[in-house]
Structures are given as C-alpha cells and as structure tokens.
Nucleic acid binder design. Sequence first.
DNA 1: GCAGGCAGTCAACAGTTGTTGGCCTACGGG
DNA 2: CCCGTAGGCCAACAACTGTTGACTGCCTGC
Lengths: 240, 240
Amino acid sequence: MHASDSDTDRESRSGSGDGNSNGNGDSGASAPVPAPAPPRTRAAARRSDSTRAAILHAARERFASDGYERATIRAIARDAKIDPSMVMRYYGTKEGLFAAAVAIDLELPDLSALPRHEVGQALARHFLAMWEENEVLTALLRVAATSRAGAERTQDIFRDQVLPVARQVCPDPEQVPARAALVSSQLLGLALTRYVLCFPPAAELAREEIVAWLGPTLQRYLTAPHPGPPDRPGRPGRPG
Amino acid sequence: MHASDSDTDRESRSGSGDGNSNGNGDSGASAPVPAPAPPRTRAAARRSDSTRAAILHAARERFASDGYERATIRAIARDAKIDPSMVMRYYGTKEGLFAAAVAIDLELPDLSALPRHEVGQALARHFLAMWEENEVLTALLRVAATSRAGAERTQDIFRDQVLPVARQVCPDPEQVPARAALVSSQLLGLALTRYVLCFPPAAELAREEIVAWLGPTLQRYLTAPHPGPPDRPGRPGRPG
DNA sequence: GCAGGCAGTCAACAGTTGTTGGCCTACGGG
DNA sequence: CCCGTAGGCCAACAACTGTTGACTGCCTGC
C-alpha cells in the first residue's frame, strides 16, 4: 500500500517482475523463480544482473546478522557498493527485497527412496548441511521471529516443502501435520540455539554428533506410533 | 555507556536501583530482585510502584508481540497510560527497560526428587505451563532472535537455570552442557513453532499431547547413553 | 552519427525513534 | 500556614529510517 503503483512502474521498466535473477555470483539459493524475460541488450543486462545479485547477497548477509529492522537499506547498499536508491529501484520495497532474499528451496531429499530406519538421520544431516551453506536460512529465522511477514513465509516453507516430505513416510495421513510440526520444532530449535542464539554447547557440537542425537528423535516423530492420550482432559497415565 | 550516569542519578532519586517492584498488578515474573530500599512516604511510593509495574507490564506485552525494535517506547508508554519520558526516568534506557522486563525465573523443578523415568515429561509439562502464563518468555525469545543483547540474556538463563537442573540427572558431568543444549533446542524449538511462528499444527496440539511427544525426547537427551561417534571424521556406521 | 533508454548517483523529504530538559501540580512535614 | 520534593506532562532535539525525484553518463539500435 505504500508505494505499490510506483513500484510496479519502476519494476516494469526494469525488465522483470519482482523476482531475482538466476544465480551468477550468488550463493545459489534462488531456485523457485524461472528465468525472467531476457532484456534486449546483453552487456547492460549482465551488469544489471550482477548488481541484482550483489544486492541480494548483501541483503542476505545483513538480514542474517542483524534481523529485519536493523538491516537498513543503506547498509545493504553500502555492502553492495551501490546507491540505496538502486535497491529500491530493483526491489521496490524493503519488504520486497526481503521476500526476494529469502526465497529458498530446502531441496529436501526423497525420503521414500531411503531405508525406513534412516530417514531421521538423513533429514538431520541434510538440514544441517543446508543451513550451514545458506545464510538465507538464518536470515529467515531471525526475521520470522519478529515480523509477521517473516513468520508467514516460514509457514509457507513448512507447508510447501516440509509437509510433503513428511507425507512420504508418515503412516497415518491425518497425523502428518502434527508430526511434521514436531520435526520442524526440533530442527528449527537446533538451528536457533546453534546459529542464532549461539549457545556454546550447541555451537560446538560436531555435525555428525548432532545427527546421531537428532536422528532418532526425528525418526520417532515421523514413524513411531502415537504415544499419548488423544485429547482427554485430566492426566491419565500411560499403560506400560 | 549511553546515559549511565544520568540514569544512575535519576534512579537514585527515584528510590530503587534498576530492578522492578515486587508484583502487584504484575504477571508475577519478577523474582530475582529483592525488595528495593523503601522510599520515605508511603502514598507517593505506592503510586510510583504501580506506575513502574504498569510500564513493565506494557513493555512485556509489546516486546512479546512486536520484538525489540518495533516495540517503541512511545507505544509502551501509551499502553501504560503515561508519558514516554517516564519510561526513561524509571528505566534509564530502552535496553534497561528490556533487561528489567525479561528478568525471569524459570522455576525449574527439582528433577532429582522425581522418578528417573519421568523427568522428561515433567520438564516438558513445566516448560509449557511456564511459557503459557508468562508472556515474558515469548518476548525474550523474539528479542533474542534479533539482538545480541537478547541472545546473551537467553544464554544467561540457559547457563544459570537450565544447566544446573540438567546436572541433577545427567550421569556424566562432562556431557551435561551438550545434553542441556539438546534439551533447550527441543524446548525452544517447540516454543518457537508454537508461540512465535504459530505453525498451525504446532499451535493446535494439546498440551498433554506435546508432553507425550517431547517427554521421551528430553528423557533420552538427558539420560540415554551417548549415541554417536565422539568426534571422528568420515562417517562410521553405528554397530547394530 | 544520433536519439533513446538504462544503470547509477546525489540530494532531499517526511516520518519515526530514543532521549532530554523545563515546567507544572499534588502532597506531606515543619 | 508555607515549602520542598517527587510524580508526571509537554515540547523539543538530533539521528536515522524508507523512499522519491531529478540529474548524469554510457551503451545500443537505427
């Protein structure tokens, strides 16, 4: 509502909609956007693309280290070695820039192709590797904790990328959302303590050690039978 | 360093140090500060104390719902129905206000007094109850995700309150920090997905159901034998 | 060779923020 | 009775924010 019309105007002149370019100097986290309409001239387009990528890269770093509010357009522009107004011209709004910066594909593996008892470890291992090579994820988590827009974007990723994978290994379709949420809670919680809050013990754990600890947990959340009372009030003790 | 001297000056005039009053209209999360030096006159002091509490209450709500940056002094003052300058006079700095607002005692139970196989569930149950009655915790988590000061305060709580409790049930003292960090990762991750990010499946789960799911996880993190390879490179498969 | 568009810069605007100092008012002690 | 003190409000400041518009060169297509 702020500047949507002028934004659209500027964007239409610039060549593409609101997405980003396909990676060149990028950390490779911009998958879901297809190639935008190619501009007429090659040289100019290439320059523009590299600037776009530089902005995106700087934005990811800043959002990851400072969060949404403290990551100022000016700082991002300074990092990208361009004028702040260029950021606005390319991405219209700070929010637009953020949306473009945190568009990411988790590239979750096909769990149905794995031996049933290894999905937990595989999931943990993939998640850790993904997180450590993409600062985008830290940026997203940081922002999601404070802004509603960020939280919604995280929900989108959960719904579009985590849920389907959980569906591959969950026995009861009705329990898929809850189980997937439990898995996410453990994975995001680890990312939080390790990469955002930087609890020393969590940050110092070796990657494979984390995999060994979290693997069985995720495995249980995904495939173990429902442990508790369904929704009974009071406090019935489990039999056994 | 901002306004520490004038802050101290103002505070000393006002009657107490930097803490808060003992709860009157408060949500009851201000334990670690002993009763401040009582001012001379009763009526004035009581008025002052209620204002202090109102500020603290409003601050907690705002920090919890908006995070640090978006929770403005002006908004907090408006909620507390006083002038913004009063907030500064009472707490010196926004950071000081935040520090006072998120001072909390987790009141973790004495795990050594429980049957060994129930500590996981007890921990999960206590944590959920605590979180749902103290908006302070959501505020702290939100802020911790973006500001370094907030993250450090969370680390303090982990070190001073979670670690000792973990020590009560952990067999090997050397593994206590790592195990406590794993426990924290799961608990904070749940709080994150349920209360901050508001993943629908996580938010809709019944409390006892979460206890049933998380209990065994925490139990394992605390008491189960070390599952993985200590710190070997490569990827040695576990026997069995 | 020339016009047109495009990447990029500069300076400025309006709004908001934390923070400060001065002033007013109620009230309790002498 | 008056006076000091402390609680509270108002207005303002300086810094910083996202955002915008006008201006400048460079390159390309005709």
